[in-house]
Design a protein around this nucleic acid. Structure first.
Lengths: 194, 194, 194, 194
DNA sequence: AATGAATGAGATTTCATTCAT
DNA sequence: TATGAATGAAATCTCATTCAT
């Protein structure tokens, strides 16, 4: 479990915001330092280089996903409730910090570099495993329909969530994600339990 | 309907390939010209600048999406068959030209610039309208279940497709997209008609 | 006496206009050809290169100055009338074709190149000689005051004219040059004959 | 009152020299940096871009003109002595730093850009106002002849000075400006007081 | 921990010019 | 006489990074 200094956390945060607002191409050391009102060389006190910052952003997401996962499965909930919790947790996070949405579902951003791409793949894998796991348990207890493989159901659930968030972002956050998310979940619920 | 010269088409094609293989950041005039074995200034004979190339890539997608759409709706098919056709057409295209997949679902790439972002939004809107339209007609004829809004069903269908393709790409095309796509469609079919 | 084809004259004319409107830095082969609605290589049919065009512009001025000179001295006029004629002729020309004013008094434009700079110097020398010559004859006939060297009087007359035209141009031709020129000449006349 | 760092002053100085020696077209970032024996990007530490350098050159002239003006009018001098002082001051400056002459009277150089052109116009306006002001006071005290408008006298004085300096420069500084300037002033003096 | 100054590499773009047709 | 395509050279500017302080 990597821990970061306050300054490092600040850099990660500022970087996510820059990516969200202006795109990856504008994530430059100059822009980071300008946002933080410090000089450019100062950044190198805290990270060895730009790549390390990007890696830190990804590790940040990894641990955040992990925390949601353990949080959910520790409680005594039905599998449907667990799914709902995971999805609505995510949506709450995005609403609170839209910048997150711009980065977390934009794997393309990190395809530049082997190490980053591998991290991205790992994170996605982890998230999907968690969802599949919940769904499979639901299918065992007949809470969730059995006629469709858990893998496909997870693709639909995650895919729908991702697309909703992407549309929200591309629309420049012009609709109420929390509300639309809740409605989408209701529909997903219907599908899963039919 | 914009038409392009052969050289322009070549530039668009090469650019899509570069984005797919090395990411947007490597889409430089130098890399394009290197791929085409011409000099950098030569590119400017054919496009006014990099922005115009990116716009051309997007317009390319727009017309390609449009052609699939008109193609499908002109034939006498059930709405389910129409959906299947749209989805499997897309998947066939991606299989034939994986570079396409890397760009077409990566809206983030174009968020850099106002004009590009607007194009992306428009394309997405068009595609979604087409899907919703088919689903709504299916609901009217009771081919497709009525208890879930067409909008949500379209998000699930498109979202699932997008996510499958993204995973395929992140896995470096390590599975058979055509086959997995067909299986996913079978599951989607079950959901829609239940 | 160099003669130019119609196409060459057109190129010279268009070039003078470009310099006047957008400055020397915008006098590019591309801009010339765009103004003439022909292709860039077509220019090279008519001139060996950009330098030759600039030289032609200067030679144009040379002959134009020469023609004014011979025109004036051939007529039977007092020296004061000759000076007036020269000055008002110039001013009429500038009013008719403001672009001329932007180039003819802007020697700096041509300092780039040895050959051009030499031409500029020669033209200036010729013009000054003509004025000095008229003034000296006026001093011999006591039409023009004798207490000041002809050289200095010529500098004042030409200097004042140049400055007036420069101000007219910098003001974006916002005053009536013809009228202000006539008034200035009246004052010059007073000074010369006092 | 803008103040510049030493490095900025150095850049301004070097730039004026380049313009004087090789013309505006050779005022490139590369040439500036070469003259200063630093790298090209280093220039951008000190100025945001080439335009800012050109603006700084102009502001430099503005304040320099202002300083001459206040310097002169503060002393107890007749108006003729004031004019002499202004003119000879300018000439001394040019003799000491010929590069200045190449830029200060070459408004054409800056016509490229709106902002620069406006600065040039303002500077010229200021200088002329100062001269007219002195002359008008001279006319009120009958030191300077009253039969010619101050505006015209100022055009003659400034025009003559400008033309002399221009000739000096075009002749590659081949005559003694200080001496010829003093002689020209004597003639101007005669004209003004006649 | 932070900064001012600097740099090598490289990006986009413009320019004058050439060549095959 | 004209053009479409191309190019070497060079201009402006950005970027990640280093170093002395």
């Amino acid at each position: 479990m990597t821990t970061y200094t306050d300054r490092q956390k600040e850099i990660i945060d500022v970087s996510i915001n820059i990516i969200a607002e202006k795109g990856i191409q504008q994530l430059t050391i100059k822009n980071i330092s300008k946002s933080m009102k410090i000089s450019e060389p100062a950044i190198y006190r805290h990270f060895d280089g730009k790549m390390e910052i990007l890696l830190a952003i990804l590790l940040n997401f990894k641990e955040y996903g992990h925390s949601i996962s353990t949080d959910v499965t520790s409680k005594k909930l039905t599998t449907i409730e667990q799914l709902e919790s995971v999805i609505m947790n995510h949506i709450r996070q995005f609403t609170a910090k839209p910048a997150l949405a711009a980065v977390i579902f934009s794997e393309e951003i990190f395809q530049n570099d082997k190490r980053l791409a591998e991290q991205v793949r790992a994170i996605m894998q982890t998230n999907q495993s968690m969802i599949i796991n919940i769904i499979e348990r639901g299918q065992q207890t007949n809470e969730i329909r059995n006629d469709i493989p858990a893998k496909h159901l997870s693709i639909m659930v995650m895919g729908a969530l991702r697309l909703l968030v992407t549309k929200w972002r591309l629309s420049q956050y012009s609709f109420n994600l929390q509300q639309e998310g809740a409605e989408l979940w209701r529909s997903l619920n219907l599908l899963l339990t039919a």
